[in-house]
């Protein structure tokens, strides 16, 4: 797992949070996990395909999510309703989209899936044989944790329909 893949996501999150809600972020300690992720209240899941493949997950608490959407939409949200869910999913979408532009500039062409939102604390999300790089982004409204589990696609699977799960040693 290449740590360089993480920076575009951190930079993009920084820029998007600043642009959308004028909130600055500071980067917490980086860690690498091989076990399943146990979810926080809200998790936005977006897949990456093409030259990089894998998944990026953004985890945050209800409290932080509500503060984020309140600022993004300029009205107070007290409940994590459909509109709030859509706002948080969109936030993940925009950060990831921006990160892929940066990745493209670094020579990695990627395409992203629409976001999926998982609500509920304590669920385990396994990225299987993809180790996850985890970095908490601390803001005055709470943490947004970025989990990145990607690897470079091997040339023969690139753009193919089948993505084999167990490419020996890849992503380790």
């Amino acid at each position: 797992m290449n740590v360089n893949f993480l920076n575009p996501f951190v930079e993009a999150a920084n820029e998007v949070l600043m642009a959308e809600m004028n909130v600055s972020t500071s980067r917490g300690p980086l860690s690498l996990h091989k076990s399943a992720l146990t979810t926080d209240d809200v998790t936005v899941l977006i897949s990456l395909v093409d030259q990089l493949q894998g998944v990026v997950l953004y985890g945050l608490s209800y409290d932080t999510a509500l503060k984020f959407v309140s600022l993004m939409m300029g009205q107070e949200f007290r409940e994590f309703d459909n509109l709030a869910q859509s706002g948080i999913a969109e936030l993940g979408n925009v950060i990831t989209g921006r990160a892929t532009i940066k990745l493209a500039e670094a020579g990695y062409r990627t395409n992203i899936s629409p976001p999926t939102l998982v609500s509920g604390r304590g669920v385990q999300i396994s990225t299987l044989d993809f180790p996850r790089l985890v970095v908490p982004l601390q803001t005055s409204l709470g943490d947004l944790t970025v989990h990145l589990a990607v690897r470079e696609a091997s040339p023969d699977t690139r753009g193919g329909n089948f993505i084999p799960l167990a490419v020996n040693g890849a992503g380790q």
Partner: peptide, 13 residues
Amino acid sequence: VISPPTLLLGAGA
């Protein structure tokens, strides 16, 4: 193009 699979373990999420 399909993404690699992600597995969610746990009922009720």
